[in-house]
């Protein structure tokens, strides 16, 4: 598939979980479209960095989360709401859910079938990847606060 079309598809698809999960978090109605946009920007930026570009997925996640967080700070000041109202829902498409579940299910399998190096490798590989991606998301989100708004609140 054409790279541009692929990216466009990723952009559009990532907006759906951002809105769906924003509704679980009861984000106010007026903020939903911002969640959708931020989710799409974040996920498609990460996609272009690690899939089309050469960046490892963890670093791509960190960059994408930091960019979304910067946008979130701008919206937060405009709408008088905490940036996390917009940004956490936008992170949801990037959450490594499949890695986390695979790691835990591999542990359950070790218990059920007995130890094999393959199962342990699956558990450790997936678990570490999930941990590092989630850390990258949280650190990326905190980056404006760590670098720019060091001793003053964003809103």
């Amino acid at each position: 598939m054409n790279t541009f079309l692929l990216l466009l598809q990723d952009f559009g698809l990532a907006a759906i979980p951002a809105v769906g999960f924003a509704m679980i978090f009861n984000v106010p109605k007026t903020a939903l479209k911002y969640c959708a946009l931020a989710g799409a920007i974040g996920h498609s930026l990460r996609f272009s960095l690690y899939k089309i570009g050469p960046v490892p997925i963890e670093w791509a996640t960190l960059i994408a989360a930091a960019v979304v967080s910067m946008i979130g700070v701008y919206w937060a000041q405009k709408w008088r709401a905490h940036p996390k109202v917009f940004t956490v829902a936008a992170m949801i498409p990037m959450i490594p859910g499949v890695y986390a579940f695979t790691a835990l299910l591999a542990l359950v399998e070790i218990e059920r079938k007995g130890f094999t190096p393959e199962l342990l490798r699956t558990a450790v590989d997936n678990g570490l990847r999930a941990f590092f991606i989630i850390s990258a998301l949280a650190v990326g989100l905190a980056l404006p606060g760590l670098l720019i708004y060091r001793r003053r609140p964003v809103v």
């Binding site: 692929l6 598809q9 990723d10 698809l13 990532a14 759906i16 979980p17 809105v19 769906g20 999960f21 509704m23 679980i24 009861n26 996920h43 996609f47 899939k51 498409p93 859910g97 499949v98």
Partner: peptide
């Protein structure tokens, strides 16, 4: 939000997750 709406949106979200995973 109304429960049915959340369920439909979450259903769509997971279908989108499936597609996103395949794209990658």
């Amino acid at each position: 939000y109304p429960r049915w709406l959340v369920s439909v949106m979450v259903g769509l979200s997971c279908a989108a997750f499936a597609r996103l995973g395949l794209l990658a």
